[in-house]
């Protein structure tokens, strides 16, 4: 499955690009932030250390969603004034790459996509607002500005510590899930569903002290 393995230009350690969609990788040894080029990688900076949290997930964990095996290859950690959450970047065996969102013990799986409907303006978003995405009705449940703490492993876009984010989460009655990300100029749409953690049959989880 490994598409590309390079040596970190900073420390010489091995750095993997597992997903074809990945353009950024953080060296697990020296935290150098590397951008993939045609033949080589370029270091654009150094990623700040992530906040130690209680997530049972870690890079290398594997699970199954809708009968498709996936591996956790990257992570984006975000925080706001009173809390934080993780977006785990996952590569699926069918070639897709998506996100396993983790916030306050709730999990979601979503993939970047496009919808025919025009997206609401950021200023118009508030919890309770009804939005139709791809013909499916959703309700906004969370509108939040936050800050990127940092990343690890592989990621499909450029990102750095301290970058601001602005995103809204949406759900519907059948636990479909969507994120509208207004962090960049053009808003991005992620579509998926809420998932129960045990249903993902995850292996390679982090050992948490005091819990078997």
């Amino acid at each position: 499955m490994v598409i590309k393995e390079v040596s970190c230009p900073s420390c010489g350690g091995p750095v993997k690009f597992t997903a074809a969609q990945s353009i950024l990788a953080v060296c697990s040894y020296c935290r150098a932030t590397l951008i993939r080029r045609d033949v080589d990688v370029e270091q654009i900076g150094t990623m700040a250390a992530l906040i130690e949290d209680a997530s049972p997930l870690q890079l290398g964990a594997e699970g199954v969603w809708r009968h498709t095996h996936f591996a956790v290859v990257g992570r984006l950690q975000v925080r706001w004034e009173q809390g934080g959450w993780n977006e785990w970047y996952c590569v699926f065996d069918d070639g897709r790459a998506g996100w396993l969102g983790e916030a306050s013990g709730e999990y979601s799986i979503s993939f970047e996509g496009t919808v025919p409907e025009p997206l609401p303006r950021w200023e118009a978003l508030r919890p309770g607002l009804r939005v139709t995405l791809g013909g499916v009705g959703y309700e906004v449940t969370d509108v939040r500005r936050a800050t990127v703490v940092g990343g690890e492993g592989e990621l499909p876009f450029r990102v750095g510590s301290g970058w601001p984010t602005a995103a809204a989460d949406l759900r519907n009655d059948t636990a479909r899930f969507a994120t509208l990300d207004y962090s960049d100029d053009a808003p991005k749409v992620y579509l998926g569903e809420m998932v129960e953690f045990p249903a993902l049959a995850l292996r390679g989880l982090r050992e948490l002290e005091g819990w078997r």
Partner: peptide, 17 residues
């Protein structure tokens, strides 16, 4: 630390308060 409780730690504080 605090791996068993789900607490959020402050990254800006060197002591990870």
């Amino acid at each position: 630390m605090c791996g068993n409780c789900g607490a959020v730690l402050d990254a800006q504080d060197p002591d990870a308060r």
